[in-house]
Each structure stands twice: as C-alpha cells, then as structure tokens.
Design a binder for these strands. Structure first.
Ligand code: ZN
Ligand code: ZN
Ligand code: ZN
Ligand code: ZN
Lengths: 170, 170
DNA sequence: CAATACATGATATGAAATAACATGACAAGT
DNA sequence: ACTTGTCATGTTATTTCATATCATGTATTG
C-alpha cells in the first residue's frame, strides 16, 4: 500500500448535480475512482458497500437509509437497518458518500478522491442535491472561531432553495 | 401593529456561548427582546412557548425535543411530542430559536431581534453550542450557486470541533 | 490449521418527528 | 347572547431514523 496516496487537492469546483450530463459515464468514473482509492488504501469495498454506492451514484440525489434498505432487500441483501447503516458508515467515513443533515439522507460524493469540505445545494421542491466546495473556515466563521478559541474539525454547509428547473417552472 | 418593525441589521457578531458572562442578565435581556418583538408583531408568546424559550435560554446549549418535553411535563404542561414540537416550530419560525441539524436539537438564539443567518460552533466533547454570524452566500458557495442557477433561500452552517475548555483539558 | 480481525445477519429497542382528531380559549360578526 | 372562525393545546397512534447487542460467517496471517 502506497501510504502517500492522500487525496489530491481540489481542482474543479463545478457544482455537479443540476446540469445535464452524461450520467452513465459520470457513474462509471466515480465508481472507478472509488475502487482505485480503496485498493491503494486497502479498504474493502464489499458487495453491500458497493451496491449502496452504486445506488447513490445512479440516483444522483439524496436517499434515506430506509430507501436504501428497501433496494438492498430487493437485491437479496440483508434487510435490517444495520445493514444499510453499516455500509453508509463505511462510505461516509471514507468520504465516498456524504450525509445531508438537513434531510437525514445520504448522497454520493461528486468529487471522490479529492480532499474537500463539501457544501450542498438542496432544492426544497424536487429534493435535487448538488455538491459544491466550501471554505467556511476561511471566512467570517473562521474568524469567529479563532476569536473564540474554537478548533474547527469539520463543517456542515447546506443551502436550501430552488434549483434551476424548479425556479423556471415557478 | 407597526409593520415596519423588521429586525435591525446585525451589529455585533460576538460568538456568545463559550465565554463566561452574566448569564442571568443574558437570559433576561434575550427574553425581553423576544417579548418586545412579539408585542410589536402581534405574535402570541403563550405559556408553553415562553416556558420552552426560557428553558433554552437558561441552558444555553442545545436540547433535544424530548428533553424539552420532559421538562414541560415536570412543569405540568402537556407531555406528548406535539406539545414540544409545536412550541419549537413557533419559536424557530420567528427566529427566537434555531435548530441544530447536526444534533437534531434546539438552541435559543443569541441575537434575537436581529436579522441574521446564523452559524454554529458545536463542541463534540461537551456539546456546548455558540452562535456566530455567517455569510455563506457571499463566499465560494454563493458563486457556485449563481453559476448553477440555484436560488439560496436559507443556509445551514454548523462547525464541529473542540471548544476552548475542552481543547485546554486535552 | 489456529487465531484474529473484520464483515454480515437478525432481534430488539431507542429516539426523533408527524398525522389525525378532539377540545378549549377567544375574538369578531350577527 | 350566540354563532362562527381562528388559533392553540391536548391526546392517541404511527412513521421514520438510528443504534445496541449478540450470533454467525469469511477473510487474512502467523
Ligand atoms: Zn451524473
Ligand atoms: Zn464530496
Ligand atoms: Zn448566557
Ligand atoms: Zn440567532
């Protein structure tokens, strides 16, 4: 294992998710990227974990743990909550999937293999979710944290609003 | 009702929460400020609502709905979940209380009467919560949103880490 | 082939949130 | 005074999200 296989710094910050795109390629690329990181880092992308990741990549939007569980059941995997939550834990721990706190739901990472602190745009109408980059620690919040002596380890940034499609329709 | 009684713009952005302070005064001031806004805006700060607000101001940290409910029960109010959730809805709607999505819990606003988009610092060790200001729509995220055609209506910004006290102890 | 670590399966329970319906308080409008 | 409408509260039941725990299986690895 090449232990220096740290995620590369962010290069593009395009908020994949609302635009039209070649989704099949998008899924395959992401999956390949995750497989690559797993093999270089000795992580075990087991069948359940892989299936959950594939589902989330396919959907390209946030799914609740029980929605995932339903699909797992349909595919013959275990059907009890821990099955889904354990797979999700693994995927979240390793940055392949993010949890959307606002929705208590999960979405596949759009920039796997890159070290990033994600920010999300969540459409309140159609539930579409796009991932962008954030740098909250560099702005007002970072200053407040330093002033208060608070050590930021992780940030949740979620914007709620209307996606382009839903804005148009209204 | 003086309908021009919009919240004043933010003046101070001190992240109240971690520092020592005269807490009794802090509670009284906040409560007075909320009462003022309720009377000018014709909002009804009923006993349950007021009690919940007082509890959250007293505690000065995030409480779950069921913790609140326990306290309500102890004070002789209704003891079923909707009692707490309804009071919380009212308080959140009107900006007197904020929900911490990360914790599924609620905290009294530190800057009531000011229009603000709050950001929170949450200590993962002691659960202390401090409220600061954020301007997420002005930074990287705002740019991404504009680029994507996404209309931000509201943002959740929550930083997780170690508060000064817990950093010291470690 | 142990011994170990890790992953999965299944049962049970806990915690957060809401749906639906009934009752009560109060302020118009008649 | 009485009806009507609105808003708040109370209660029951249910749904949704999440975890603790124990048993079983399946890889490595010494
Ligand atoms: Zn895609
Ligand atoms: Zn990501
Ligand atoms: Zn205080
Ligand atoms: Zn606030």
């Amino acid at each position: 294992m090449t232990s220096d296989a740290r995620p590369a710094p962010v290069k593009d910050s395009a908020p994949v998710g609302f635009q039209e795109h070649d989704h099949q390629t998008c899924v395959e690329t992401a999956l390949a990227s995750v497989e690559a990181r797993c093999s270089t880092e000795g992580l075990r992308l087991t069948p359940v974990r892989r299936k959950v990741l594939e589902m989330l990549l396919q959907e390209h939007r946030a799914l609740g743990a029980y929605a995932i569980l339903d699909r797992l059941r349909a595919e013959g995997f275990g059907s009890q909550p821990p099955v889904a939550y354990r797979a999700l834990d693994f995927l979240v721990q390793n940055g392949f999937v993010h949890k959307i706190e606002r929705l208590n739901a999960f979405v596949a990472c759009s920039h796997p293999g890159q070290s990033h602190s994600p920010a999300f745009m969540i459409c309140r109408k159609c539930d579409a979710v796009a991932e962008a980059q954030s740098a909250p620690a560099k702005g007002v919040l970072g200053a407040a944290a330093r002033a208060a002596g608070f050590e930021i380890e992780r940030t949740v940034v979620e914007a709620e609003g209307l996606c382009p499609d839903c804005t148009e329709k209204a």
